[in-house]
Write a protein that binds this DNA or RNA. Sequence first.
DNA 1: AATGAATGAGGCTTCATTCAT
DNA 2: CATGAATGAAGCCTCATTCAT
Lengths: 217, 217, 217, 217
Amino acid sequence: MKKKTTNTPSTFHEEGRVARRRARVRADLLAAARQVFIQRGYQEATISEIIQIADVAMGTFYLHFRDKEELLLALAEEGLQLLREQIHTALTAHPDQPLIPLIIRTLLHAAYQERELFLLLCAGESHLLAQTRTHQAQQGLAAHFIPPLRAAKERGELKESDPVLLAHLLGGMLVRAITWWFDQDEPGPDAMADQVLGMLAHGLPSSLLTNNDAPTS
Amino acid sequence: MKKKTTNTPSTFHEEGRVARRRARVRADLLAAARQVFIQRGYQEATISEIIQIADVAMGTFYLHFRDKEELLLALAEEGLQLLREQIHTALTAHPDQPLIPLIIRTLLHAAYQERELFLLLCAGESHLLAQTRTHQAQQGLAAHFIPPLRAAKERGELKESDPVLLAHLLGGMLVRAITWWFDQDEPGPDAMADQVLGMLAHGLPSSLLTNNDAPTS
Amino acid sequence: MKKKTTNTPSTFHEEGRVARRRARVRADLLAAARQVFIQRGYQEATISEIIQIADVAMGTFYLHFRDKEELLLALAEEGLQLLREQIHTALTAHPDQPLIPLIIRTLLHAAYQERELFLLLCAGESHLLAQTRTHQAQQGLAAHFIPPLRAAKERGELKESDPVLLAHLLGGMLVRAITWWFDQDEPGPDAMADQVLGMLAHGLPSSLLTNNDAPTS
Amino acid sequence: MKKKTTNTPSTFHEEGRVARRRARVRADLLAAARQVFIQRGYQEATISEIIQIADVAMGTFYLHFRDKEELLLALAEEGLQLLREQIHTALTAHPDQPLIPLIIRTLLHAAYQERELFLLLCAGESHLLAQTRTHQAQQGLAAHFIPPLRAAKERGELKESDPVLLAHLLGGMLVRAITWWFDQDEPGPDAMADQVLGMLAHGLPSSLLTNNDAPTS
DNA sequence: AATGAATGAGGCTTCATTCAT
DNA sequence: CATGAATGAAGCCTCATTCAT
């Protein structure tokens, strides 16, 4: 049994070439997966179709991802990475701006850019995420809001409100805003942010929430 | 299609008995489905397991439901029916109360009662509902809020806000409130309603949304 | 367990009524079966659809026919009965005409009248007939020709030909004539009979069958 | 679809080996199918039984054939291929012989060799062929006879006869000759050809077709 | 590392037939 | 006699995954 595992690469470019090839195949698979997941939905998507589009062999898929779920997670990671970067950039660019509006605006911009991917991740298809990481997506989303809300709580500005729960409710609104784009592309991310922030700023008109005329018991 | 009614009316209870038996089998299937869907999730649920629990034969299932999807829809219909009834009751009992808080409170009560079912319908699993009826669940939810918001809009109380979009954002919050119960059962429906309504009443503290001290740029 | 089986019919019309009802149901089933068999083919036809069209209950079907096959056989019997009657009539009306042309003409007329039924019986669908009664249809068809051919054989007019085989070959031609009507309704039964009889009268032109110019080998 | 040829050409026989293996599995499936189709008939044949005999897994079947129908078509193609080859050989070997007898003889020889397969294709089972390709088998058969008959027609040797219809009637005879072998293996293909050609040469004795003695009415 | 033919468990669904009413 | 809800065996087919090359 001669094992010809070249521990010493014949040329020093070799490693880089192999690594690049690998990365390229991985990228092809991710791109194909994105396309197919968006088109068919996670459940209906088949690895078969993905590898055909990526133009690699069945076995190759399993050299890069353990299974379909890991593929989805990688795709989600891509989306979240994009998000993190944009948020980081925004924070750096506007260090004096209040956090929450900044994050909301940036998030909605990023999500609008990649509407279909975020739809996939936010909408029902992510049942796997839900089961494995318990709403990773939504939690990750809410996580951004927890620190400022907690700070406000400590400043006594939130009264009875639970900052964590509040963050999640806010997350729910944003997820709904993103899925709204499933049906209509209007309004764009800025107008959408205005709608969300408008609501957050003033709440609903008190006429809708209180019994205006009668002194209720 | 001629329907020969009571060709053999040996007892006049006959028809009723057959109908009752039929309804019972259907109910058994729905109960079994609820259990299995909640336990395994929609996708992982198999008709096989459902009929085993319902203790009927394969074919019997298809006598009552065309496929797994129709079963889910029937289950959803059950939940929505419960909801509609409770909302109707609440509206009748408190005709002078403002609509939105009433609906939110009632909805959260109903959803908390049947947490697991509503979780199934609200959370990711409902991708089928999404595809067939375009977010029927969420839309149905939002639908309740559209009329009062539209009225407020016409009274000029909503400024720039789009009442339909607002209703959906509100719906998103409520869905998130319900899925929150997936992890913790706390807070109960009333406290949850208070949190939601608190946010709707005042929005977030302005310190979180506006640049309080510095005239930016 | 009181069994109220009226062995003594209350009125003497009763029996007749019951018998008539029975016959009517049977006829409804046959008519429905004919329609469905023709439309879907034997294999694709379901008893379910047949009873729906006949407007009787599942169980009722099994009071009249043991299974789908018996239904097809009954239908075939109907067709053959029609055929026998028409042939008998023709034979009676023209006792001095030669048998074979008479039968061919009559057969083609009858088959054309009920093209679709005969198609069903002649064409591929009749694999059951084939398996159970070994080409009952075709054999029944050929049977008509065997006696006259045998007679001719005995008169020494057939030389080497086997009258039974000949009868079957003739049957094959006629079956093909009938299935021809599947695609085109032209030519009508009389012209078709002329074509068949023309071929039977003279065979093919000898130029097509013999090496006209060269003494081969 | 980029096809990377021989990325890993460890041995230059590699590709051939895989292809050969594949072809072998396909051949195994065809052989098994032939056996099962003949034994049980097309409808009664199950893919399960076929793969058991071919000793491959379920999925493997679907790697080679879309469904049962495609399998039958492939089998039919095999038969027709055999036929075409033999007819071509015969035509080349005897270019001076008249076409129709040559084809009939060759066809009957080929069909007799593979009696069971041809039975399957000619007899009722081929309803699928009928539906998909409109009697492909029979039409393909008749097709051979159309050109010479048309030529004869143009030479004025066919009088009233329609050459296309005639070809089909001839085809019907031959199909019947083949199915005759279902019951008896006698007479062999040569004697059978003699019977068919005998009938084509002279038709039936005129005594069977005309009213010989009496001027009718 | 890449390939892709082969695997096979297990899902969904149909439908002829029965039997209690 | 008529009913039709219930039965359940059995077929088809998919697709994630493996492994020899």
